[in-house]
Design a protein around this nucleic acid. Structure first.
Lengths: 335, 335
DNA sequence: TGTGAGGCTTGCAACGTTGCAAGTGATGCT
DNA sequence: AGCATCACTTGCAACGTTGCAAGCCTCACA
């Protein structure tokens, strides 16, 4: 098992170099020799050693996708899109999850191509910020995903969170709701997603001439179902509960939905609900979930293309690309 | 950037070998030399080249986890568990998804350690069977996950599907339900999961003296929400619809739930529902989902430990390990 | 002063592959 | 016959690392 070029060469009675030429389909090989070598290759079941090849060529054909949490549906769905895009370009994606742990993020991202065997990195940071990333010792190209504001210096694919949050909020306003809550604000300065969406939320309220009520803007530590359920409980305990809620992602919304229904209230009649991400779960909940749909395929496509162009030596200044999004209206706002 | 041992050695005025000794913390290095080398290492920001190291050492510290679909919550949650277990042992997991495509499965699994840079493989096949796998040319250790019956020859972690399906079915019988349906049977001989669960289902009915009604056993192509929704529509269109449904995974159950509720029926009053897998979604649906909970942590732990023991040269005969499971009763069967 | 031991450092080779440039032998042309 | 040409094949070196065993130097002791 595990034949090397050397062994194949001995069996075929040629030099190692000639076997390599056959394996790599170089034209300058006589038909007879090629056949003889091919026979030996088949008989020994030769498979090129990827590690040696990578060392020699300086390219592994692997790109790493580093995400906070794989079992968050948004990331799982994004991962699928990235794998598909990369496969189309002949690259294999390997995925790793950081749980947003700064130590782990740093470990994976900072040690560059020398340490890991990846040609490039697509990275959605939770804890690391621009300063951390700028002085990476490595020269492996990196493309960043997600909403953390990185002050320049690196390629970055994002969506317009302020605009998208505004769109979601306006939809609730247009339905005639006046006491609108938000779930998912984040106090922590380093978590930009929540802050940007809150900015869009309040801007939309202000534009509509509605009052901004701090008690209706609920922070959460994470964006999980349990956070949404807990925040919704708090909102329902208010003397004057909201008649609509904008949740900063679909998991929060699904958690909130569960809480609302278990209090005997109806969605959307009593409380209208909008989420964010358009994960599959939200299409099958009852009621199904109105949500902001970021174009995940586009995000993946941009990320992979940008990374590959860097791999091919593109040295244009770092790009900031905004992906499209739209509002998908479903039952939770009463379609 | 990307300093090599050679460059560090030149800067510190020592040999390459000595730098290597410092990097690897060999004791036989004089304190002064060590300090000087360490200084050079720091100044150049040296990071060992993992590819060269792997080539030399024959170990990469990477294990691959190959799964059908990453955006199926069960697999996403299992992935988290595997990553955690492997990290505890100092291994990094890279994940790849096959979509159950035999070509892709073969490509990833058959070309062995020579081709990929992984020390071992944890593989959940959908399409490949025992015969395919046995004559792998590679010597990379593999541990199989999932319910496909592999006729010996490889390590395999599974759960007792027949028993688990029987447990779920008995629960419905104990509730007094008499017209019990199943969703997720699979005609395709190669998809064992559905067949095993159907075996457990019918065995439980038979034991309880209930009749087996073929029209109540609905096959599906996949185990996705949409398959569950469609199958449930068919069941509701029967002249005499069921009063309980056992779905072969939670996604099927969530799809079925959506269909039931949208027909104005109640769960569990009109139809009781049991799923399988215990994904997080089922804990937050309304009603929450009664389900079979396989011990994912245990599966991951066994898989990683077995793989690592093979890596260390364990040559005991291939193991077949059954992981634990239990029944979690929630609202969908009326707790 | 010679010898051995011990502490520290080093050169060589190898992991398996491929780029480079040179090598071989046969063929064709003058 | 002599020489250039062509088609094909090959050896060497290198990618960056580490195992092995030898080497050097100093020091202690006789």
């Amino acid at each position: 098992m595990a034949a090397t070029l050397r062994e194949v060469a001995d069996r075929a009675g040629v030099s190692v170099r000639t076997v390599s030429n056959v394996v790599n389909d170089f034209p300058q090989v006589a038909a007879g020799t090629r056949a003889r070598v091919q026979k030996a290759l088949d008989e020994l079941g030769y498979q090129p050693n990827a590690v040696a090849r990578t060392l020699r060529r300086g390219r592994s054909g692997l790109i790493a996708l580093v995400l906070p949490e794989l079992d968050v549906p948004y990331f799982a769905e994004l991962t699928r899109a990235v794998i598909e895009q990369a496969a189309a370009a002949g690259y294999t994606v390997v995925v790793d999850q950081t749980d947003g742990d700064p130590v782990r993020e740093r470990e994976l991202v900072m040690r560059g191509n020398r340490a890991a065997m990846f040609d490039g990195l697509i990275f959605n940071p939770l804890a690391l910020d621009g300063a951390d990333l700028r002085d990476r010792p490595s020269s492996t190209p990196v493309v960043l995903l997600g909403e953390r504001v990185i002050q320049g210096g690196l390629d970055h694919i994002m969506i317009d969170n302020v605009g998208a949050a505004g769109l979601a909020t306006r939809h609730l306003i247009d339905l005639g709701r006046r006491r609108i809550a938000a779930i998912g604000d984040q106090a922590d300065e380093s978590r930009q997603t929540g802050r940007l969406r809150t900015a869009g939320f309040t801007a939309a309220l202000r534009t509509a001439g509605l009052e901004i009520t701090p008690e209706l803007i609920r922070p959460t530590e994470f964006f999980h179902r349990s956070d949404g359920a807990a925040a919704m409980s708090d909102l329902l305990a208010l003397p004057d509960p909201p008649d609509a809620v904008f949740c900063y992602n679909d998991l929060l919304a699904l958690g909130a939905l569960r809480t609302i229904l278990s209090h005997g209230l109806r969605v959307p009649e009593d409380i209208a609900l909008v989420g964010f991400d358009d994960i599959e779960d939200g299409r099958y909940s009852t009621p199904s979930l109105t949500t902001i749909r970021p174009d995940k395929t586009q995000i993946a496509k941009h990320a992979v293309q940008l990374l590959l162009s860097r791999l091919e030596g593109d040295t244009t200044p770092p790009a900031e690309i905004s992906a499209d999004y739209d509002l998908v209206i479903r039952e939770s706002t009463g379609s």
